[in-house]
Design a protein around this nucleic acid. Structure first.
Length: 584
RNA sequence: GCCCCCGUAGCUCAGUUGGAUAGAGCAGCCGCCUUCUAAGCGGCAGGUCAGAGGUUCGAGUCCUCUCGGGGGUACCA
């Protein structure tokens, strides 16, 4: 890793062992970027935490560490001890030059692949058949796609799983309705399906006889009735077509091969229940087969059941989730499973996880994680709806994002060719939409606001994309000349100015950021980093002329720095699922 | 009732897993384009980190309680 922090870590560990013995070989040096640059570039806070166990004064501990620290070639001066025992570190410019040099030709930008790769199943998107995708699917789809991209880049083996909702009583209702109105679904559009679904639901709720026939239709579906199945298949085909259209517009990497729908676990469900019984955790309560995972209570304070088989013999999503988890662990050999699902399902998932552990289906070391996220809110701070109070369709959001972006481009750079403007509007609009979702801490709700997400200032995709075009503009104006013979290597970076320093240090921090996102599964950390990087670039841009640099070496160095920065922004955005444009 | 999540500047949000004087953007005010895209940069102003205790050398961050908001809580997913 090029990240200075890893090198400092090694030096500190050595110093700690030298100073206090082998026991401290694994002590975390608690290295952090300095909060205030007046103290330096990095700081170690280990002396304070160590003081107590060593029975010494924190400042003495700090002095001792510094005495044993090989700071030469990394820091520009002997680290100072300040305050209660902070060790302040100022990086040597030559060290920065050295660290940056290998990044110049490196497509991975210094990010090495993890030494302990997981096989990660990322479960995300999961829309429902026969319904149009809506704003409720936005976050899972966007966040999940980002996480999958980041984990791939970090070196894990990633298996995307799109757990389509293609099964359940609602299909009996829908198919019965379609048959009764004499409507063949062949060639029907998903928009029609939405309407059919709503009509069927109305009838189901108001017409008792219809409800009975719908229930019988469910039985027919489960029993493999040919006519019923044929309807069901056409519903699925049209729905997939729709999903793929939305994914394609959004630039989401899911394909048909990632689909593992609910129904694909149907034949495993009886086995799940039978095995739960074998494991001795199954109890029948009020006619339903249940597991009572520890730590969950119902409103009366009694153990809360997770029902795996209804009193009528039917199965529920808990059963399917258990079956899916077994498939992922046993057949996909997952060592980590991440569920990118709405935070409202945290209790449900907690029970599923508890059950998997209790019966030993999640072998030791299989990490089960709920990547929970909050709700998309409207301007009234209530769940986002259309002005009329209806569901916001995802495809409408995509269209509007592009339309609004086009208007912005039109007003700022009207001279570009029409097709070019459209392409830019697509990349900028979708980027804004996604970035707005990813840049907030995912656990929190966020307020959906077109103006803010499409703003070209602040922590937004357009600001980052603009930073990229600003760099590209330099290369367009004056492509880098071949390295002047005997003067310098074109890849050599020479850090001199404070703005160059700040930019250089930011550029070197990418590996740590990637690692932190891979662990925490919090994409907003990457957003924050990119925003800081872009801001550092703009400051550099203001104070450090590139093309008219004072000498050839400086010019060449700054060009290399620009190129590195452009590639880092582009890579970061790519990991978020967002593109860049050459001009905007 | 019980459980989970959230509460940081007027607004929208960060805060690197406990570190120094809590940071951005917007909105407001003041500056900077004969020079690589001013969609930018610099500056001013703006805070009892919901509140109260506690742990600690040190708390926006961890623990307890209170208040406020949201969600979940037996056969939908």
């Amino acid at each position: 890793m090029a990240d200075p922090i890893t090198i400092l870590q090694d030096r500190f560990r050595a110093a700690l062992t030298a100073a206090f013995g082998q026991d401290h070989a694994d002590t975390d040096p608690i290295l952090r970027p300095a909060q205030n640059t007046q103290f330096g570039d990095y700081q170690s806070n280990v002396a304070m935490s160590l003081a107590k166990t060593l029975g010494k004064k924190p400042r003495d501990v700090a002095d001792e560490i510094v005495k044993h620290l090989e700071w030469q070639n990394v820091c520009s001066e002997i680290p100072g001890v300040a305050g209660p025992g902070f060790i302040n570190l100022k990086l040597d410019s030559a060290f920065l030059n050295e660290q940056l040099a290998p990044l110049v030709g490196d497509t991975r930008l210094g990010v090495t692949k993890t030494h302990t790769p997981d096989t990660v199943v990322v479960d995300y998107s999961g829309p429902n058949v026969a319904k149009e995708m809506h704003v409720g699917h936005l976050r899972s789809t966007i966040i999940g796609d980002c996480i999958a991209r980041v984990l791939v880049f970090a070196g894990d083996t990633v298996i995307r799983q799109n757990h389509l909702g293609d099964w359940g009583t609602q299909f009996g209702m829908l198919i019965e309705h379609l048959i009764e109105i004499g409507r063949n679904t062949q060639g029907a559009h998903v928009k029609d399906l939405n309407v059919f679904y709503q009509d069927a639901k109305k009838r189901f709720d108001s017409d008792k006889d219809f409800a009975d026939r719908a229930r019988k239709r469910v039985v027919a579906l489960q029993g493999g009735d040919k006519e019923t199945l044929s309807y069901w298949h056409t519903l699925i085909d049209e729905s997939k077509r729709h999903f793929n259209e939305v994914y394609q517009r959004l630039g989401v990497q899911l394909t048909d091969s990632d689909i593992r729908a609910e129904s694909s676990y149907n034949d495993k469900l009886p086995g799940v229940v039978a095995d739960l019984e074998k494991a001795g955790v199954l109890k029948v309560s009020q006619g339903a087969s249940c597991v009572f995972p520890e730590g969950f209570k119902d409103p009366d304070g009694n153990p809360l059941p997770m029902i795996v088989r209804k009193s009528d013999g039917g199965y529920l999503y808990a059963t399917t989730d258990l079956a899916a988890a077994r498939y992922r662990i046993d057949e996909l050999h997952a060592t980590r499973i991440v569920y990118v699902i709405d935070s409202r399902q945290s209790d449900h998932l907690a029970m599923v996880f508890a059950t998997l552990r209790a019966v030993g289906w999640s072998r030791d070391g299989v990490k089960l994680e709920h990547v929970a996220f909050g709700t998309v809110l409207g301007p009234d701070r209530k769940p986002f709806k259309t002005r009329e109070g209806g569901t916001v369709k995802l495809i409408d959001l995509v269209n509007e994002a592009e339309a609004r972006a086009l208007k912005e481009i039109e007003s700022r750079n009207a001279d570009l060719p029409t097709q070019e403007k459209k392409n830019i509007a697509h990349t900028v609009g979708i980027g804004a939409l996604k970035y707005a979702d990813l840049s907030n801490d995912r656990i929190k709700d966020y307020v959906f606001d077109w103006d803010r997400m499409l703003a070209f200032d602040g922590n937004t995709a357009p600001y980052l994309q603009y930073s990229y075009t600003r760099i590209k503009s330099i290369f367009r104006k004056a492509p880098p000349p071949p390295p002047p013979e005997g003067v310098t290597n074109s890849s050599a970076i020479l850090i001199v100015q404070p703005a160059e320093r700040a930019l250089a240090i930011k550029l070197l921090q990418l590996p740590g950021v990637i690692q932190s996102v891979a662990e925490s599964l919090e994409p907003h950390r990457l957003c924050t980093y990119l925003y800081e990087l872009a801001a550092a670039y703009h400051k550099f841009y203001e104070t450090c002329p590139v093309l008219s640099a004072p000498d050839v070496a400086t010019r060449s160095s700054r060009l290399a720095l620009c190129d590195l920065c452009a590639r880092t922004i582009a890579k970061g955005l790519e990991l978020l699922g967002i593109g860049v444009v050459e001009q905007m």
